[in-house]
């Protein structure tokens, strides 16, 4: 077990290093004039060649990339001072650089937007399980009936439609057209400010994510349950005279849950890493919408920070899933 954990951790660190370096290099060698946006902002659009050169120098683009990458990584862990246009800004850890547009450290804006994304992710992921697993179990128990077939084929249809169209239509009808009270007014209000507004603003987004995401879980749960219910130990449990509920949920579901835990971990990580379509459609001020806006304004430090953040979240999610899986199913450790 210990050797396996160490091996997985080392692989995770290696991937993290590679990803962070590729993101850094992409933003280093990618743009033709990396300092152009900063220069335009600081000089109120009177940026000329000479000023551009000065900003390029100040932002460190004339130094070697590995030195700057080292500074960037150091900034993420311990923070650093950044001097631009004779103005030094203290950028505390985790420092992802300064925004080109407002000159503030990226993390200061980012930490205000993380709760919105987390709220969306937690609610959506909860619904994945709450809708998906019971539906899958119910379908497996009624295998071959009309209800089962209707569920399977309607979910096949649903999962063939792009998610953003489903979400967009939901928003257009429930919010824009019918203006449903409470849940019609979408957006993010902090939970501490008003729990009802928080719930109402996110409810539609959760429902959309939940309905759309649960199809996969229903499929898995149904498949695993069908398999589990035909096992010998289920027949034994039935023969012992256990109530059906105990047989299905205690004996059957427990075996079926292991693969579901795995995909749930990855899905939850993906949601945490950014729910761009959901945030864009339901107007929720999370990091997805924020980075999308930063793309439009060409505010590259924000884009690179969100990319790095998402990569870290996803790699961690994968790592945790691997470790949990090795506890649930010891066979994986050996392979």
């Amino acid at each position: 077990m210990f050797a396996y954990v160490v091996k997985r951790l080392l692989a995770g660190v290696l991937v993290l290093f590679l990803v962070s370096m590729s993101i850094f290099l992409l933003f280093w060698y990618g743009p033709n004039e990396p300092a152009r946006v900063m220069c335009d902002t600081k000089t109120s659009n009177r940026c000329n060649a000479e000023r551009l050169d000065r900003f390029t120098e100040e932002l460190g683009y004339n130094n070697a990339w590995y030195a700057e990458y080292g500074d960037y990584v150091k900034g993420v862990f311990v923070g650093r001072d950044i001097t631009v246009a004779a103005q030094t800004t203290r950028c505390d850890a985790p420092c992802f650089g300064l925004s080109y547009k407002n000159g503030k450290p990226v993390w200061e804006d980012m930490k205000d937007r993380l709760p919105a994304t987390f709220s969306v992710a937690i609610g959506g992921a909860t619904l994945y399980l709450l809708l998906g697993v019971p539906l899958g179990v119910a379908a497996a128990r009624r295998r071959g009936t009309v209800q089962d077939k209707a569920l399977v084929s309607s979910f096949l249809f649903l999962s063939s439609v792009p998610y953003y169209l489903f979400a967009l239509l939901t928003w257009l009808f429930f919010s824009l057209k019918w203006e449903v009270p409470l849940i019609g007014d979408t957006g993010y209000v902090p939970l501490t400010e008003s729990p009802t507004a928080w719930f109402g603003g996110l409810a539609l987004a959760w429902i959309c994510l939940g309905i759309f995401g649960c199809t996969q879980y229903t499929r898995y749960a149904r498949g695993a349950m069908v398999e589990a219910l035909s096992e010998d130990y289920i027949r034994t449990a039935k023969a012992k005279g256990l109530p059906t509920r105990t047989v299905v949920y205690r004996h059957g579901l427990r075996a079926a849950l292991v693969p579901i835990v795995t995909i749930f971990g990855i899905d939850f990580g993906t949601l945490l890493a950014g729910t761009i379509f959901t945030e864009r459609i339901f107007d929720i001020e999370g990091i997805g919408l924020w980075s999308l806006r930063a793309v439009m304004q060409r505010d590259l430090p924000i884009v690179s920070a969100t990319a790095l953040f998402s990569a870290v979240v996803l790699i961690m999610a994968n790592l945790i899933v691997d470790l949990v899986y090795s506890i649930l199913d010891p066979r994986v450790r050996l392979s």
């Binding site: 992409l26 590259l300 884009v303």
Partner: peptide, 22 residues
């Protein structure tokens, strides 16, 4: 496996401004 870890949407979001910038 490395590519499977990367989210497609975020990669597209990251690469789009770079290309348009360049």
């Amino acid at each position: 496996d490395f590519f499977l870890t990367l989210p497609f949407l975020l990669a597209a979001l990251t690469i789009a401004p770079i290309v348009s910038e360049r």
